[in-house]
Amino acid sequence: MKALLWKEYRQNRSVLIAGVVAFVLPFVIVICVELYRDLFWSTNNWGPQVWQVWLEKWLVPTMGSGCLSLLTWALLGGYSLTGERYDRSAEFLAYLPISRRTALTHKIIFNVGTCLIIYLLYRLILAGIVAAYYQKFSAEGRLPVQPNELADMIAPPLLYMTATALLMFCVAWLFSSFLNSPAIDTCIGLASPLIVSMGVWFWAWVVDPPFESARQAPAEEWYLYTCLILSPLAFLIGSLCYVRRTEP
């Protein structure tokens, strides 16, 4: 039903605006700094390491934009179910002939869709920067970083960022299914990667010290696996709690 998707969009519009600002801000900062340098210092001479400066200049805000997008994921998860309970509009919806399953389906479509759009947009910008880098410097005949090296450089942080974003969204979603404050849900979502990484670290270094050697995997990888197991579990439990909840 279009009406429910429209309602989800309007309900979460402030979160989406915050998300767009967070996404764009690092690029705006870089552009402003460049303009400032061009206008007041009139220097475009970056020395012999011009490729490195160029790559860093655009990769750093891209990574920053990705990190700030995590906030949007947590906010979406935290506000998705609690937002209506907080302003009590959930009571108004309860009088309408909308089943919990229908409401949940539309919430999932909207939230997962939005997260997916953020993620794809992010990947598109990243791909655009990499493509621009190759176009610019391969034409000049100097390409110090090969494609596979660049992929090795970008892929791991991207993977951890994705897993962390997923964990934040799903944990915030879980808590928003039974708490009444979106701020608390979002904070728990934001804190969840810290709690999980502390748990993995505690297990690896205190409870089971030969952890890494025995399993032939670094603790970071276990963080990744934990995120990938906990996230769908939290999402599923949160969805069930929402559907089975008696009160609006």
Partner: peptide, 22 residues
Amino acid sequence: PEQNFIHRWMRVGEAINFCRSF
């Protein structure tokens, strides 16, 4: 109800269109 919690951000027309769809 005694207290109505229609979405405060809606306009009257939007609230009517929203409910009409159900």
